[in-house]
Design a protein around this nucleic acid. Structure first.
Lengths: 366, 366
DNA sequence: GACGTATCGCAACAGCGTTGCATTACTCTG
DNA sequence: CAGAGTAATGCAACGCTGTTGCGATACGTC
């Protein structure tokens, strides 16, 4: 996306408040001015002005009244899901999966498409654009843009896919710019696991202040939400836990080193030892929780769906044992609410987040 | 500290800008209005008002002029280090170490005191208070409060030391409230490693947007600064990497599990194999960098000082090899600038940070 | 139907940064 | 050594934010 003129300080206040109201309303239940005033620590009168702005933009609407006792009934407000749309694409080496979602992140329509071998960029971009255009034809609401999630490292500000060490036809391709030019729409390119976490967080904003999402697809990836912000990292690859060492001098990994979580996981699966594989996952999660101290862990990815009971049990047991001496630590382990659409939905939600999410900085050209 | 009335939204803007200016000025070199306007993305005129507020409070002062070419010379501004003071205490089972620092985090005076065995709380609190009072007598400037850093888990909002599983006379003690009552000063209680990182970040604000500090004292601890905020975690124990598993089924740990980093580290040291110990440290750092993607790692703690060359070399080598396939990843490994005062200074800086740091929340009763 | 109550809206206000323009203090030119 | 050019600064009016005070509205209760 082109760099915008940085908003004026007072616009940032207004924007932050608008985003906060939207975040609360997104949970689904109609809200009253009083609740919002409480949550934002402003006067009800300020909420009136904030809601006026949001209704002006069509993002929110009145939703009836509620009589609680004597006095004038409370007016309730809700988001207007159909007011905006975003497209999310999930690209892997084998598949192209896309969705359109409404403002609340609910799926309007989905597309799935197998791609034989990774096509070269000049073929890939039109294929992505074609699916995006099909999806763009669906549903009402202003179309905000396209989010694209893919595995592997990404140069986020540049929108360039960095690629892996193996021969990779997409390596170094400025995918974001190419797709944006092709479609004439804003495009956001990010990591698959980060997209997935943003997607989960979009529909349950305050639950995931400190959460980790573990994505088990071909590789092992994670994303972190800490103190309310989804961490991107200095090199835009925070959460790449696949090559974290869980057994020094252990199984050889494709990366040339030994005992990487990913290598141990696949070695165990190859040996048919599902329990051992689950134990590796559990160790990764335990280390993750110890390191960043999240209170929620979300499991996602095609590979875990098959044996999610085993994995979740192993993880819960490991957490229980590992924190036995620290009874104040409670970690909720849950399965992604989005199934196999997880990453595509997340990619779409990144667009929503970009437009209507809480800004992270109150100061500077953020 | 008592809950303050949450600042009005516009005061939050002013406060954030004041803090941002202070953060830039803290780097040491005098700054001009133009630089500040650039950094904060506001007009020079706004900087005039911000500086007027800061000079009113005695936090900043003019620092001469600079002639660059034709036109009126630029007026320069700097912080007034002597305008404020904070006390920092570092409490371990064996030692009580304290400092007073000025507004820039420079040490005015230090005290160190051995304590035979961990005294019971009714003796501990007066001992802490006595050292704090001695330190409070030193140096000019308004005394803001006392920071206390200690190893082991802490219930941060409650100011309660949670203690370890071993018999622990301090377990569950509301140390913050007790000390605050004794001294009649605000007290902040936090983790030793987090304090250390806050201390490092206070004197080099923008360098440590994504950084990890590894503290090797009796145990192994870390603290994380991600996207500019020092992570506290859902249970206020983020960075507790000591019991992270680096060798599944490895050396037995005091925690009852196997292959914890701390256990492997001490096992290697006990066997006299410093190289192996350094490799364990290196693995911890590598996993940390993979997981949270920091671009700076700071080493601190009494134990590393003895053999910091070996440790740093092992870490640098491991990072170099581990990220060989990702040439865009550069991680700076450095030694703490504070020596053994690291944690005491950090605890003091937490008070400064609390008062004059950038607010993390834009909205709500933050 | 009058009263108490809670919500809501209008209008005036304070404080933030912005804008436009005058002032100041320097260098450079002739 | 004036006078022009230049860049930083200050003053005043302004727009926008949320706040405050008060009146209007709509409900339940007596």
């Amino acid at each position: 996306m082109p760099p915008m003129p940085s908003p004026r300080p007072l616009e940032r206040v207004a924007g932050a408040h608008d985003a906060a109201v939207l975040a609360i309303a997104r949970r689904g239940e109609p809200v009253s001015r009083a609740e919002l005033a409480e949550a934002l620590a402003v006067t009800p009168q300020a909420i009136s002005k904030i809601l006026a702005r949001l209704m002006e933009r069509g993002l929110m609407a009145e939703a009836g009244t509620l009589v609680l006792g004597p006095g004038k009934p409370t007016t309730l407000y809700r988001v207007v899901p159909t007011s905006r749309r975003a497209i999310g694409l999930h690209l892997t080496r084998r598949r192209l999966h896309g969705v359109v979602v409404d403002l609340t992140g609910e799926i309007i329509e989905r597309r799935e498409q197998e791609i034989g071998a990774p096509p070269p960029i000049p073929e890939l971009i039109p294929a992505l654009a074609a699916q995006a255009r099909e999806l763009a034809a669906q549903g009402p609401g202003e179309l905000l843009g396209v989010g694209l999630g893919m595995p592997g490292p990404v140069d986020w500000p540049a929108g360039v896919y960095r690629g892996t060490s193996t021969p990779d036809p997409w390596r170094g391709a400025p995918i974001r710019a190419l797709l944006a030019a092709e479609l004439g729409l804003p495009v956001l390119l990010d990591h698959d696991s980060r997209a997935a976490l943003v997607g989960e967080a979009w529909s349950q904003p305050d639950l995931l202040r400190n959460a980790a999402l573990l994505l088990v697809e071909d590789g092992l990836g994670a994303a972190l939400s800490l103190e309310g912000t989804t961490v991107r990292g200095a090199h835009f690859q925070a959460g790449e836990v696949g090559h974290t060492v869980v057994r020094m001098d252990g199984a050889a990994c494709t990366c040339g080193r030994r005992g990487c979580a990913q290598a141990e996981y696949h070695a165990a699966l190859a040996a048919g030892d599902e329990a051992a594989a689950a134990r590796v996952l559990a160790t990764v999660v335990l280390d993750l929780v110890r390191t960043v101290d999240v209170d929620r862990v979300i499991l996602g990815g095609r590979t875990v769906y098959a044996q999610h009971e085993t994995s979740m049990d192993a993880i819960r047991t490991a957490l229980h044992e590992g924190f036995a001496a620290e009874p104040w630590v409670h970690v909720e382990v849950m399965l992604s609410t989005r199934g196999t659409d997880l990453i595509a939905v997340g990619a779409a939600c990144q667009v929503l987040e970009h437009e209507y999410g809480l800004p992270q900085a109150l100061v500077g050209p953020g």
